[in-house]
């Protein structure tokens, strides 16, 4: 979408993912990330991101572009974009939240963490472990103790589904 009327040369940055793919983006888009902003302020135009894989980086660049173009009139459009953005698998959310944390993009972090908190609502600890590929590191005795300490002899049904 190169604008022909644009005369001023836009400052560009190159981001390099952990799997060595390079992406060129406008500086104004990239500096929404505190991590990138700090590097730009130190004079870098080539930004290696050893903790961010290509798959997550593509999605995050998409997010940054969309949010860089925020105006008063496209509020609804951005809301819809955000909703679609987080409507993904838990594995993707893991990659995204780790990347967003590394890149220090606070609005994205807030959105992702809220999504994760909402999606584990009502889930049993067993279901949460399966979803997040977590091996329980409690011994059965320790786990029994915690459940008892919580004293939450919950009688209700927690959600065992993995979506």
């Amino acid at each position: 979408m190169a604008s022909t009327t644009e005369t001023k040369q836009k400052k560009m940055l190159i981001l390099k993912s952990a799997d060595n793919d390079e992406f060129e983006i406008e500086e104004s888009v990239g500096v929404q990330s505190e991590t990138i902003k700090n590097l730009v302020e130190d004079g870098f135009t080539f930004v290696p991101l050893p903790n961010v894989y290509t798959k997550a980086l593509i999605k995050i660049i998409d997010y940054l572009k969309k949010h860089a173009n925020k105006t008063d009139s496209n509020d609804e459009e951005i809301k819809t974009f955000d909703k679609d953005f987080v409507n993904t698998t838990f594995d993707d959310l893991f990659e995204l939240v780790s990347a967003a944390n590394y890149l220090h993009i606070s609005c994205l972090m807030n959105m992702l963490c809220q999504t994760i908190a909402d999606r584990i609502k009502d889930k049993s600890p067993e279901a949460v472990r399966k979803i997040f590929h977590i091996n329980c590191d409690y011994t059965p005795e320790e786990e029994a103790k915690i459940r008892k300490a919580n004293a939450q002899a919950f009688e209700g049904q927690f959600d065992e589904s993995l979506d």
């Binding site: 893991f94 939240v97 780790s98 944390n101 972090m109 807030n110 963490c113 809220q114 994760i116 908190a117 909402d118 584990i120 609502k121 009502d122 889930k123 049993s124 600890p125 949460v128 472990r129 997040f132 977590i134 091996n135 329980c136 590191d137 409690y138 786990e143 915690i146 459940r147 919580n150 939450q152 919950f154 209700g156 927690f158």
Partner: peptide
């Protein structure tokens, strides 16, 4: 997951039963 991220998530959990279950998942 980074502790900072866990903190951001746990501070968004409003139901007490979810909060306590969160702690039962792992150390």
């Amino acid at each position: 997951l980074h502790r900072d991220i866990l903190l951001l998530i746990v501070r968004r959990i409003n139901l007490i039963e979810d909060f306590l279950n969160f702690g039962t998942v792992c150390k």
